[in-house]
Measured scan of single mutants.
Amino acid sequence: ELREAFRLYDKEGNGYISTDVMREILAELDETLSSEDLDAMIDEIDADGSGTVDFEEFMGVMT
């Protein structure tokens, strides 16, 4: 189920989504998050600083 959700956002099928897209997902899930909260969450999610979120990083957030 998580893989299907990931595929919805990984429109190009390249195995990752951008941190911008991940930020939008988080904002949709919790509309009360401030910009600073979102920045901090993205920094934590994208631990390797690649600017992308792969499936493993995505799973870590969603579980």
Rank of each mutant, 00 (worst) to 15 (best):
E1D: 15
E1V: 12
E1I: 13
E1G: 13
L2Y: 12
L2Q: 04
R3P: 03
R3N: 07
R3T: 08
R3K: 11
R3Q: 10
R3A: 12
R3D: 09
R3S: 07
R3E: 14
E4F: 07
E4N: 07
E4P: 05
E4M: 07
E4R: 09
A5K: 15
A5H: 10
F6S: 02
F6W: 14
F6H: 02
F6I: 02
F6G: 01
F6E: 01
R7E: 10
R7I: 12
R7G: 09
R7S: 12
R7P: 02
L8S: 12
L8K: 15
L8D: 05
L8F: 13
L8R: 15
Y9S: 03
D10Q: 02
K11D: 05
K11C: 13
K11G: 05
K11I: 12
K11F: 10
K11P: 11
K11A: 10
K11N: 07
E12M: 08
E12S: 06
E12D: 11
G13C: 08
G13I: 02
G13Y: 03
N14H: 09
N14F: 10
N14V: 13
N14K: 14
G15K: 02
G15D: 03
G15F: 03
G15M: 03
Y16V: 05
Y16M: 04
Y16D: 01
Y16K: 06
Y16P: 00
I17E: 00
I17Q: 00
I17S: 00
I17H: 00
I17F: 04
S18F: 05
S18I: 04
S18W: 04
S18E: 04
S18A: 08
S18G: 08
T19L: 14
D20T: 14
D20I: 12
V21H: 10
V21M: 13
M22T: 01
R23Q: 01
R23V: 01
R23G: 01
R23C: 01
R23H: 01
R23I: 02
R23M: 02
E24W: 15
E24V: 14
E24R: 15
E24N: 14
E24M: 15
E24T: 14
I25M: 06
I25G: 00
I25W: 05
I25N: 00
I25T: 01
I25Y: 05
L26D: 00
L26T: 00
L26W: 04
A27C: 07
A27S: 11
A27K: 14
E28P: 01
E28Q: 14
E28K: 15
E28G: 14
D30Q: 07
D30F: 14
D30W: 14
D30T: 07
D30M: 12
E31I: 11
E31H: 14
E31Q: 14
E31T: 13
E31M: 12
E31Y: 12
E31V: 12
T32L: 08
T32P: 02
T32E: 07
L33V: 04
L33G: 01
L33S: 02
L33H: 04
S34A: 06
S34E: 05
S34H: 04
S34L: 06
S34V: 05
S35R: 12
S35P: 13
S35F: 07
S35W: 08
S35C: 09
E36L: 09
E36D: 11
D37Y: 06
D37W: 08
D37H: 07
D37S: 08
L38N: 00
L38I: 12
L38P: 01
L38G: 01
L38A: 02
L38Q: 02
L38F: 03
L38T: 02
D39A: 08
D39G: 04
A40R: 14
M41E: 01
M41Y: 09
M41I: 11
M41P: 00
I42E: 01
I42M: 09
I42S: 01
I42L: 10
I42G: 01
D43K: 14
D43V: 12
D43R: 15
D43G: 11
D43P: 03
E44T: 12
E44S: 13
I45Q: 01
I45C: 04
I45S: 02
I45N: 01
I45P: 01
I45E: 00
D46P: 02
D46V: 05
D46Y: 03
D46H: 04
D48N: 11
D48M: 07
D48Q: 07
D48W: 06
D48R: 08
D48T: 09
G49P: 02
G49A: 08
G49M: 07
G49T: 05
S50D: 07
S50A: 05
G51P: 01
G51E: 03
G51A: 04
T52Y: 08
T52D: 04
T52C: 05
V53T: 01
V53R: 01
V53D: 00
D54K: 08
D54I: 06
D54L: 07
F55I: 08
F55V: 06
E56M: 09
E56Q: 11
E56R: 10
E57N: 13
E57A: 15
F58I: 02
F58Y: 09
F58Q: 00
F58L: 04
M59I: 13
M59E: 07
M59C: 09
M59Q: 09
M59K: 10
G60R: 15
G60I: 15
G60W: 15
V61K: 06
V61D: 00
V61Y: 15
V61S: 06
M62T: 03
M62C: 10
M62D: 01
M62Y: 09
M62P: 02
T63H: 10
T63F: 09
